[in-house]
Structure formats: C-alpha cells, structure tokens
Simulated assay, not measured.
Amino acid sequence: MAQNVLLTGGSGFIGKHLTDVLIEAGFSVSVLSRSNREDTPRVTYYKWDIKKNYIDKNAILNADYIIHLAGEGIVEKRWTKRRKRAIIESRVRPVEMIYSVLEMNNKKLEAFVSASGIGIYGAMTSHKICTENTPPADDFLGTTCQKWESAADKIGSLNIRTVKIRTGIVLGKNEGFLKKMTPSFKSGFGAILGSGKQYLPWIHIEDLCQIYLKSIEDTKLEGAYNACVTDNTTNARFSKTLAKLYDYTIWLPKVPPFVLKIMLGQMSVAVLTGQRVSSEKIQKAGFEFQFTDLEKTLINCIK
C-alpha cells in the first residue's frame, strides 16, 4: 500500500503542483481543507478549521508524512496589525494543532516537512550571502519565519525528523509571483522597483517540488535548507529580462521607494529589499537544480 503524504495548503499554487509530483512518485496524497470536498481517485480530503481549532485527527493518524504549506499570503494585503497577526497565526497554529494530535495519540511520522521563507534573514539589502547558519532577523519577516520554524521544531521534539524549506520567489507558468508581474510587463509598462539593486532569489516550481520530494525520501535531510537559485539576480535584472522576452526595453523610470511605501505601507519592504542567499547546503545534500538560467526559466514560464 502506498505511503500517505498529508498536505496543509494543498489547494494552493505549490500544493497543486506538489500533489502531482507526489502521486507520480508513488505516494497517496491527503489534503486538509476548510470546505467539505469529496474524495477523488487521486486525493483524499479531510476537514479542518483553524479558527475553530478543529482538525480531523484521522488525517494525521493515517499519514506517514506531513508537508505544511498553509499560510496567508505575505504580499496579498497591507500589513495592518490584524493582518500581521493573521500571517503568523496561519503558519503557526496549524502546526500546534498537528502537534497536539501527534502527542495525544503517540503517533510517529516518518517526517514532518514545513515551508519557511528566506525572509527569515530580514528585509534588507546587502552583499552578504545568507546561509542556513545566518541568525534570524528581528523585523516582521524574520520574526514570522522564526516562529514558523520554531513551531516545526516542536514536532521535532517528538523524535520526528523535521525539515524546513526556506523558499525564495517561486516561478511557474503564469502563477505565483509572475501572475502579479506579467500583466504590466506584457502590456509594455514594466518597470524597475526602487533602486533595482535588491536581490531576488528565485526557484522554479518544478525544482521546489522536487526538493519537497527529496525531503521526505532522503532520511539524511533534517533541519533548514534554502530553496532558491544562487545567481545573484536583482530586481533590475529580473525586470529587464522579463521585458526583453516581451520584445521591448524598459522605458519607464524606476518606481521611487516613496511611491511604493504610499501604495503598500509597511509591506513595501518586501519588494524594496532582498538578500543574497546560498543554496550550497541543499546541493551538497545531492539536489541538482534543473532550472538555473533566469532567461530560460522565464521563457518556460510565460511562453
């Protein structure tokens, strides 16, 4: 009988792609859903409700692995106090609920894999290369990721192998980050944001899903791993490359930081800053990126 992988956030951009990858690899997939959904030949659905502190414990008891992807979008809405609280709670609370079921039922997983973000290194721009040993920042993004990972580490305290995937910008076919970017660039109105010098660590959705697959299949993987291509892409380079693929050179002036701060509020730091991030650790663990050339990757995503 196929081993079962339970996904939180399974209906999202990453979750949908990962479901296909897991099934192709021979796993059965279960998804925690807020709505009542009928099972399909491919996926079993279980109900949960974070606000009501409810989770169908059978989802966890029947799982061999759990991959935690759930979380409110970082750049979907302005960072009000309420929104900040929702961003953190949507990442931490599910893990706390899962932990309670595991502990109460003495359930042992083969592994628990949690998403995280390179935002743990902070909303700033510098030439320093961040590795998994770089201390977490004390700003909002750093604190959010730190709490996210601390919740996952609590699962690890149950003697369960725990892996944390610190993800950069995820690129897919007109999905994720590109879904927001392509309309203006496609119409010829693409522009560089701020100074354009902020780094933009990225990863193709297919490579990210393969990292998650490796995280459950490779028993040597444990702890945090950066999931992004180390090619020092900046916002300016990314923007110019995307415009090139739509057959024009960026003609608009750079969008000044103060304009973005007016439009986005505190959230503007997410687009005005960016760190260099090393992927050496996951590569030394035997992972090979299939998408490492920015232009070829963008062609794959938009053509």
Rank of each mutant, 00 (worst) to 15 (best):
G194K: 03
W202K: 04
I118K: 02
K186T: 12
I55L: 09
L245F: 03
R93K: 15
N133H: 10
K81D: 15
K303Y: 12
A123R: 01
I203R: 09
K220H: 14
N133E: 14
R276F: 01
A285E: 14
L245G: 04
A227N: 07
D39H: 14
A115T: 06
D64R: 13
C130Y: 01
S100Y: 01
G71R: 03
S187R: 14
F287R: 11
Q275G: 06
V269N: 06
E76P: 00
K173G: 04
Y45S: 11
P256E: 11
A224L: 02
V21F: 01
D293A: 02
V170N: 06
N62H: 09
F189P: 02
D139L: 01
P256Y: 10
T131Q: 05
G119C: 07
C228L: 09
Y248M: 07
D20Q: 15
P257N: 15
L22S: 07
Y99S: 02
V170K: 04
H204T: 02
N105A: 11
R166L: 00
T219V: 11
N62L: 12
Q275I: 10
I74P: 08
Q198D: 11
L298H: 04
P201M: 07
P257M: 10
I129H: 09
K303C: 00
S195C: 05
K108S: 12
S30A: 15
L32W: 07
E217N: 15
D247T: 06
E222K: 15
G265N: 06
K244S: 13
N53I: 08
L69E: 13
M263I: 14
W251L: 08
N232K: 12
H68D: 03
L200S: 10
C301R: 06
T249Y: 11
G190N: 05
N105M: 09
G9I: 12
E132Y: 10
A243I: 08
N300A: 14
E96G: 01
L200R: 04
K128C: 01
I155D: 03
D139N: 04
D49F: 03
D218L: 09
E222I: 14
P135H: 09
S150C: 01
L260D: 01
K179T: 02
F27D: 01
G10A: 10
K173E: 13
D293K: 03
S114M: 08
L264K: 10
D153W: 09
E72D: 11
L171S: 04
E103Q: 15
